[in-house]
Amino acid sequence: MKLGYYPGCSLNGTAKEFNSSLKEVFAALNVDLEELNDWSCCGATSAHVTSHILSVALPARNLLIAKKQGLNELLAPCAACYSRLVSSQQELKLDEKMRMKVEDLLEEKVTNGLQIINLIQIFQKIGLDKLKEKKQVDISKIKAACYYGCLLVRPVDIALPDDMESPDSMEAIIKSIGGKTVDWNFKTECCGAAHSIAHTDIVEKLCKGIIDNAQKHGADVIIVACPMCHSNLDMRQLNIIKHYPDHKPIPVLYLSQLVGLSMGIDEKKLGLGVHYISTKPLLEKIKSDALPTEVKKEVPAPPVSNDKIKKGVEA
């Protein structure tokens, strides 16, 4: 299988472990990645928050390169790039005036037909059976909270065809490689995204909420498919640890890293050593011979009487 590849800026920098793990996994699955020649930034958040034309034209340059390279499918593993690429493509399709402007700027005709896919979709395409076949390591001792964030499932209708409020396609992938997942509430809550630098306090509070909910539901690890979600949940967890002394650190892995672990790929090659929150306890748990920890049976809370609700007393 040959596939166009748009790594995006983050995968060459802060998310280099996303890039390396993905390449290892696809090599094992015999998927050839053909990187776009001279690709450029999609403009990310900063383009669409300040200029409409930038937000359409910057991704469009890359869509045209893909067509020139004769590619029909383009993998954009970064959820933000993915969202910008599909949004630009959609706008070029629907807005005649914008299309003409972009064609004029890039001196080329915009053509349709390129299929842009994200990490979840490529695993679905390869087939979950194939992932199951490649499984070598038992990862059933750990429980994963699948975090989709915003841009895998939105914009609705053109992004991942899954439930926008409660998606489960990532869970299906993890189950196919023998992993366990938790049911939780913050799968598609925003992590604060690009506010990481200018409003670190906001990101910290939003991420604390996400992590707390994942842990409350028994997760040992949070799985993501977006460099921005990763950097906020992993790197900004250092700020959380500083400000919340009771905080229990939780590692955050890219989906490709977990799939790679199940295939028995070397931890170093998967970039598991460059996280801010150590992945060591998690890796030890996977390797440990101990039986999976019993899930504590929660005693259902007694029904709350109407009086209590009226008085606002917590049950």
Binding site: C9, C41, A44, S46, T50, A194, H195, H199
Partner: peptide, 24 residues
């Protein structure tokens, strides 16, 4: 009303304009 956020986006875009890719 939120100068910091605007400055962040401007700083990000300046790199794209100069180099074509993000330069953190």
């Amino acid at each position: 009303a939120d100068k910091k956020t605007q400055e962040f986006h401007e700083a990000f875009l300046k790199q794209i304009e100069n180099f074509g890719r993000a330069y953190e």
